[in-house]
Design a protein around this nucleic acid. Structure first.
Lengths: 365, 365
DNA sequence: GATGCGGAAGAAAGCGCTTGCTATACAGAT
DNA sequence: ATCTGTATAGCAAGCGCTTTCTTCCGCATC
């Protein structure tokens, strides 16, 4: 049915080996022959069979991208930039370049492992894991083992927005986000405005991103002498006046979390949310409670997602250069750019002060 | 290096054919043999080579998804639901199920064709084209031809959010969005509020989505006797008091478009934007001009993207069930659900009235 | 005019799997 | 005791490409 190399070869009056060589351009072929083959390819509308090629050459045109949910702008931005980067061939020739296989894990460890198997099955050229890692000893070990295997078989691995995996060998490159630093500067900003009762609607438990942002938050508080310094790894103390609740990175978690926070401490003057999406939920909850932002309560997000600047009021947040990170991950996963020293780069985050934060009102409520 | 079927066969003391049969479960194998093979697979951590399988079985685990930009929530929502749907195997068994290859075309016809070639190369099991089509005779013909070829070679094709391709044979299923109806109801809503000077920051020219939304808009105006009925296919008349400008689906296009609109007719009392993202830009521009929404100018979006409800003020818009559509496209592209009659379904859109639209203020500005 | 050499093309052996066909074995039927 | 039928398992031929090794040809070299 389909046109094969042999058909093209017959038409051009050469062997299939020669056609293959013309197509790949990795072996000298006389100019006239090349022309003849080219013409035959065009006339027959020949399209190579990628699977056959991959099998024979032990190569692959696929790069896997694991995300929590590609509909979440955080991941969408990374995935989009990554896809664009790898699609552009080395010589910017269209038709070279790899295809991105996007996998929604929903944050589930099992799904993560399942997709890694599926990508191993496809003998993917590379795999990029994005977003925070689930911090579970067993799961981390399982993922590390799978990644080590993949790496050993030639698949390039890049972690984007998650902490490095020390036990997996040096083959794994990491692009980490400075969540801790960003969170710290964010909370410092609130403290410097005069806030002291700062609530926290944090992300899911056992997530590296959650932990890092919380650590930054705590460090800022500690620097102001507001909370005892707690040894690393220890549970964050849920202090009166600085309550912490956990939820997801979605709007409704923010909404529910804000209500719970208000129950724990009705006098909070500021709330830092898990991310911008959750922050929108926080704002909505406050509005529904008749509290104004930032008049009664200041609210801060994280990530600086595109919609944040248009929220009401515009969200104070921490910007992460997600697209740059995604593009860089793409270059790294193809080996198109050299890995950073130590196989790990940390991308800086930037505090974006906007309308949703202001000094606390001195008045009682 | 890698473990192959033959290795497993040797370990289990059977032929590779038997191993293949156990793995695929499509041929009777004695229970004891099956057990032995299963054990060997587990002990060797065997993962089948998808490319070899695909080549031999003339099958594929890949489904292509063409989007403008997966970072755009409109496409992200569709792609996400689609991916989730196809990843779940027929028997909900993980490990069955297909992988989604996401391709950002950026709305470029050439990119669209390039990706179709790449997907043909991979012998994709299916391809889903999402979002409005570029309405160019030549390009439509080229795409139609390519899709017909793909369909002929067994690749299932689904169009999601774009008009059907009549000349491509019946193999192509279409899920169309009722953009026209939605736009019409939206403009009717504005008219019924009393608006008569309604500006339009429309999407890109030559895009089916843009055309349909504009047609709905125009139909509503015509029904109010506000614009002459214009024959289909004719250019939309840019009437004084009802100016139309074109741009992209992004925020800055909305911003610039709004400014241009105000230049054309400083007295507009309402603006309908190309979509919600552009609407945010429109609101920002109005704000920067010192105009309040909806006090001075009402603004409406389209799509009901997740952030729209949290905008300031909440956007009146037209809801498209993007996730449902994406999931349905996933089912259709795998042949898991039967195509609708006529190979075409239109999904209804719903007017969402929120705070960004209100009756025009009687006062002069 | 025999020899050697480099450039260009072909023959053919896989890559790792699926699957049609064949072979074997044992049960029941004749 | 022979024949037929029904399970299982194996053989081997591909699937469409890449790539090594060989062959072939023309030309400069001695």
């Amino acid at each position: 049915m389909a046109v094969t190399l042999a058909d093209v070869a017959a038409r051009a009056g050469v062997s299939s080996a020669t056609v293959s060589r013309v197509l790949n351009g990795n072996y000298p072929v006389a100019g006239s022959t090349r022309e003849r083959v080219r013409r035959a390819v065009a006339e027959l509308d020949y399209v190579v069979n990628g699977q056959a090629r991959a099998l024979a050459a032990a190569s692959s045109d696929l790069v896997g991208v694991l995300v929590n949910d590609v509909a979440d702008p955080f991941f969408g931005l990374i995935a989009s930039a990554l896809q664009r980067e790898i699609a552009a061939g080395p010589g910017r020739l269209p038709g070279d370049g790899k295809l991105a296989v996007v996998c929604n894990t929903g944050g589930s460890p099992e799904a993560e492992l399942t997709y890694l198997t599926l990508l191993e099955r496809q003998r993917a050229a590379g795999v990029v894991l994005t977003g925070g890692a689930v911090e579970d000893r067993q799961h981390t070990a399982a993922v590390t083992a799978r990644l080590a295997r993949l790496a050993a078989s030639g698949t390039r691995i890049v972690l984007c927005g998650r902490p490095p995996l020390p036990d997996a060998g040096a083959e794994i490159t990491t692009i980490a986000f400075d969540n801790r630093g960003g969170a710290r500067r964010l909370t410092e900003h609130l403290l410097s405005l005069g806030h002291r009762r700062i609530g926290c609607v944090a992300g899911p438990l056992e997530r590296s991103t959650t932990r890092h942002r919380l650590e930054g938050h705590r460090a800022a508080l500690a620097a102001y002498g507001l909370a005892p310094e707690v040894a690393a790894g220890e549970e964050f103390r849920d202090l009166p006046g600085r309550p912490v609740v956990h939820g997801g990175y979605d709007r409704s978690s923010g909404y529910d979390g804000a209500l719970e926070l208000l129950r724990k401490d009705p006098a909070v003057t500021a709330i830092v949310a898990a991310n911008d999406t959750a922050a929108l939920g926080v704002c909505a909850a406050l509005r529904d409670r008749g509290l104004s932002v930032p008049g009664d309560v200041s609210v801060a997000g994280f990530d600086d997602l595109p919609f944040s600047v248009d929220a009401a009021p515009a969200l104070t947040t921490v910007r992460i250069p997600l697209q740059e990170a995604g593009a860089r991950a793409g270059r790294l996963v193809l080996g198109r750019s050299a890995p950073p020293p130590g196989a790990m780069a940390t991308v800086a985050t930037e505090l974006m002060v906007r309308g949703s934060t202001a000094p606390p009102s001195g008045s009682a409520r």
